[in-house]
């Protein structure tokens, strides 16, 4: 195996962790509540802008921008839940596409109106630099995002499977009526889920902004891959999204290197359809 290929695989794994990070918030609301959020990419975009504003205008570093983005997007998540999602859940599944697509356009172009169409990038001095380990180069900002992605996904997994709150949320997602009979308030749990998803999404945005450009339409660029990641891994499985993210990242990197970057998406999509052919519930979803 050539040395460059090792480097390519490492960069693919880091990219995959970022995809998992990007998808983590989506897994929660989509996997747990069966609500598809077409505005997810735009939530991430707003998290990125939060980081840009705090970094460039207010002079804060990642320690300020990450919590700020988490709080801001969590608030946005809860607001979206109470003002919109709660109501469209009463309609058919299509209403979710309709409502969240409208929300996506609204958020994207509200950002456009406020920040302008320009591309923004953060100075790479704050989490810049890179280090070499056994001849393989790791880049600071991507490492931070990748590790952040792993940490958030695992944290979400632990919350959902090991805590009382997680059990309550799962109960609501399985059967809200039964959950209500057991004294759990479904709406409250769902609002909590949106807050958690928002926080994870905000953190994702703030971390991705450290090495990616920020523009009003950036969410669109990353959203499709997030959708694919979540369904590839299987709805309802946070760990599935992580594994799927890593697989997609490596497959993209390696195929871009060996076959050609134009075809990397083609290969990921073919792989995705194949996985669904053999496992219609995704890698780790419940049948």
């Amino acid at each position: 195996m050539s040395f460059t290929l090792v480097q390519v695989i490492v960069s693919g794994l880091l990219l995959g962790a970022v995809y998992a990070l990007f998808a983590s918030g989506l897994t929660l609301v989509w996997g747990m509540m069966n609500v598809v959020n077409f505005a997810h990419g735009d939530f991430v975009m707003l998290g990125m802008y939060t980081a840009v504003v705090i970094w460039t205008a207010l002079g804060g570093g990642p320690f300020a921008s990450v919590p700020a983005a988490a709080i801001l997007i969590a608030t946005l998540g809860v607001l979206s839940y109470f003002l919109l999602v709660r109501h469209i859940m009463r309609g058919p599944m299509l209403a979710q596409i309709l409502g969240t697509f409208g929300l996506a356009l609204f958020l994207r172009y509200a950002a456009f109106w406020y920040f302008g169409a320009d591309f923004k990038t953060l100075p790479d001095t704050l989490v810049g630099g890179s280090f070499t380990l056994g001849g393989v180069r790791f880049e600071g900002a991507r490492m931070l995002a990748g590790v952040g992605g792993l940490a958030i996904t695992l944290l979400l997994h632990v919350i959902l499977t090991r805590t009382a709150m997680g059990s309550r949320m799962l109960a609501v997602s399985e059967d809200p009526v039964a959950a209500q009979l057991m004294g759990i308030r479904p709406q409250r749990m769902q609002a909590v889920a949106w807050a958690m998803a928002g926080a994870a999404t905000g953190i994702a945005g703030a971390l991705i902004a450290t090495f990616f450009y920020t523009s009003p339409t950036v969410g669109e660029t990353l959203a499709i891959i997030a959708f694919v990641t979540v369904s590839f891994g299987g709805f309802g499985s946070v760990l599935g999204a992580l594994v799927a993210g890593l697989i997609i990242g490596v497959v993209e990197s390696v195929s871009a290197y060996l076959i050609g970057p134009v075809y990397k998406d083609v290969i990921v999509y073919v792989l995705f359809v194949l996985v669904l052919w053999f496992r219609p519930q995704g890698l780790m979803g419940k049948a």
Partner: peptide
């Protein structure tokens, strides 16, 4: 050139989805 088109367009879709989720 301020993207206002889609702010309005998006908002109207959201409002319709909010109040008439079944169309």
């Amino acid at each position: 050139g301020a993207g206002l088109t889609f702010v309005v367009y998006g908002a109207i879709i959201v409002i319709i989805a909010r109040f008439l989720p079944s169309g």
